[in-house]
Design a protein around this nucleic acid. Structure first.
Lengths: 248, 248
DNA sequence: CAAACTTAGTCAAAGTCAATCAATCACACG
DNA sequence: CGTGTGATTGATTGACTTTGACTAAGTTTG
């Protein structure tokens, strides 16, 4: 079987089952464990799945580009995310210099921006595109592009980030926990987030309630380094660690 | 069997199965492995399939949305532009380090790229997006975004451009003339083009016949600094100034 | 904390590749 | 009718890529 065929089969299985073990794949593909592992490594590198101990899982694919409307409307906690985006956009003041992190939550934020005198910098391709379409001043970070998320990553992005001093920054996250702070599944993504947060006078993390008490592999900041903007705070203990802004 | 018959058969099988091995094709075509390989190489070069190790896969342009089709079909000199794009894409060799200039002509070029081992850098947002969707290695220049063209501009873009040494670069133009060389209407755009061309070992300007003997305000290169890829060369005098590649 | 399992890395074997070459064929020309 | 020319084909080659088995190191689980 061709390499590409195996890739396609693996991704098809993942789409269906969301998670699969190496052993299951060796049977499905009639290939050796070594080959399956190599395939998973390649697909992981190109961002088409997450490799985990013992197998792989489907990408957390709330990211998207073109068919944004369709996907977001189908997305989870849609109302909550909208109210979060609205609350975040309200924080932007005249002549602010704002960093917007790649990701769907922050993408929604752009729709609610009304402040025309602010300047924006982002590492998300769709974000840059939307901001420009609204007639706002926008720059994009340079660097390698990750296919799935359409986000700019890598050493070049990090270097150019360090030149900026943002007044405000808006970030997405996959997990929030008192012990592990804000965390994300991808290492290079985490590195960008960590660096960007360091360049912001005020950092805000946008998170719906499902992200609380979750831990992802890579921590990119501790709780005290950013305020959290969320829909409805269910777990009051987070008030001990950082400032919380509730939407609506 | 005639060469064209084999081509047709291969493409028909691919359309149905999406992937096929060389061995399967030798049986289906009653031809030797050498012949099948030669056919695949030819079809790959002309952008009608992807050659992969062990066989070939169908081209999946699932990213080219209906909207885009409309746009491209509505454009002027559509056929000529397609053949220019095809000829340009065929120039990309394994491990090339390629710059792709923002603009619609170069955007079309991306559809025909079959070389997976090359690395791409671009200043066009849609270009980066398409390249990434095809699973190619791609970086984007950092800098300010121009709203209309979705192209990255400005001092930051210039600075990061100077770090790269491209093996090949593909550019659009608004005017070509013996006296004023290649020219464009926008100053900052011209500056980017000028700098980028300087970083390319081989530069190619893609231009349909309507661009010849036109002059735009800003000259970004003289004729000798880039080869011209065009559909059909009407004015033979340009052969005195630079190398010309005619599509189809 | 030890057994069971998982992993990245190395290696030889099998498979695949582009390049070369001689054989074949069609066609043109004298 | 024979010879030359160019195009196409299939066999062969040495170089390269992929594969699966094995191993030593690391991780999970009871």
């Amino acid at each position: 079987m061709l390499t590409e065929e195996r890739y396609a089969t693996i991704l098809r299985i993942l789409e269906e089952k969301k998670a699969v073990t190496v052993v299951e794949l060796t049977r499905a593909l009639h290939a050796s464990e070594s080959t399956v592992r190599r395939d998973l490594t390649a697909l992981h590198k190109s961002g088409r799945l997450y490799k985990v101990y013992g197998g792989a899982t489907a990408i957390d694919n709330n990211y998207s580009s073109a068919e944004e409307d369709m996907k977001t409307k189908a997305g989870l906690f849609n109302e909550e995310k909208t109210s979060i985006a609205r609350a975040a956009a309200a924080l932007i003041r005249p002549r602010d210099f704002v960093y917007i992190d790649a990701g769907t939550t922050t993408l929604r934020l752009i729709d609610f921006i009304t402040e025309k005198s602010a300047t924006f910098v982002t590492n998300g391709l769709p974000h840059a595109s939307h901001l420009a379409a609204k007639g706002l001043k926008v720059s994009i970070l340079g660097g390698e592009l990750k296919a799935v998320t359409e986000a700019v990553m890598g050493p070049e992005a990090l270097a150019s980030l360090r030149l900026y001093n943002f007044t405000k920054g808006f970030f997405g996250t996959n997990g929030i926990s008192p012990g592990s702070g804000f965390s994300t599944p991808d290492a290079s993504e985490g590195l960008i987030k960590r660096t960007a947060i360091g360049q912001c006078a005020h950092a805000y993390v946008l998170a719906d309630h499902s992200k609380f008490n979750c831990i992802s592999p890579i921590t990119f900041a501790n709780l005290s380094s950013a305020a959290i903007i969320t829909g409805k705070l269910l777990d009051r203990k987070y008030l001990d660690y950082t400032h919380i802004i509730e939407g609506e």
